[in-house]
Amino acid sequence: MLIAKGLKKNYISKEKNGFFRSSVKTIEAVKGIDLTIEPGKIVGLLGLNGAGKTTTIKMLSTLLEPDEGSCSVDGLDLVKDAFKIKHIVNMIAGGERMVYWRLTATENLEYFGKLYNIPKNELKNRIDGLIEFVGLKERANEPVEKYSKGMKQRLQIARGLINDPKYLFMDEPTLGLDAPIARDLRKFTKSLAREKGKGILLTSHYINEIEELCDYVYIIDQGLKIMEGTPKEIASIVANCTNQYKIKMLDFSEKLKSQFETFLRTVQSDYFIEAADGGYEIDVTSHMDIQGELIALLSQHTKIISFAAMEPKLEDAIITLSEVKAYEQIHA
């Protein structure tokens, strides 16, 4: 089991104050994160850009040394036993970089396999299996520079699995992948955990991906954990945080306006209205599910042409959660 407690990481950054002048600034990237990854489970790590997800993953994968806190991976200490831990972890990051463009897919995997000192025959079998899994069999012996973005990313995934890691850290692995490949990867990720007992840490911007795959989810913002729970719990919070409604209606009388605004004030919600196609379009944003109340109120005064409840956005939920957290800290 991977158990991290109070992980902290600061970066020293230089701030330019003129042509020759600069001052040193400490950036607290991760301010104390606890998390647990059990073998056979998929754990989600969610957060906006700059939340500290990648720094956390790099600490867990031994690329960065935590400034404070501790982490044990199957009883091994993350700092003292970093070399041993490297055998049982791997990381997959989204994007096209991090493979050798002039080498073929097979040559790339051979290279990384040899760095893990995998015996020749075993490495060959593993490469064949991985290349087939990521759908590169037909072009396995072509230079990577001729691959599409998605193909390069698929090679990244194969590379991340080359040492058959016990713990796998996946930093937005489906970013930019075609839907069928992303679906296959999700399926494969699930099977890696369920059938092969691997512990997986997954970061993603797609709430559906998190809901489908993760057993447990941590939400972090500005280096701090702001929430944790099962995907179901997270999804319900997301839904409550970021309800958006798009309504088209025939007219918007003064009487309706007055009642509408009074209602929105009571539920702490906002709206935006504009005239469109001989009627009106209203966008309502609310932290509560007010779909029923809205329909009831509007239909008393006007004809509703269309009513759409927008799918909640994870980003909005995280922003709301971080605002709530900041408010609680100020008023604690």
Binding site: S61, H87, A93, R97, M98, V99, L115, Y116, N117, N163
Partner: peptide, 13 residues
């Protein structure tokens, strides 16, 4: 630049 240095250091090579 190509990001592969990190991957080399990720391995126990």
């Amino acid at each position: 630049v190509s990001g592969t240095l990190e991957l080399i250091y990720l391995t126990p090579s």
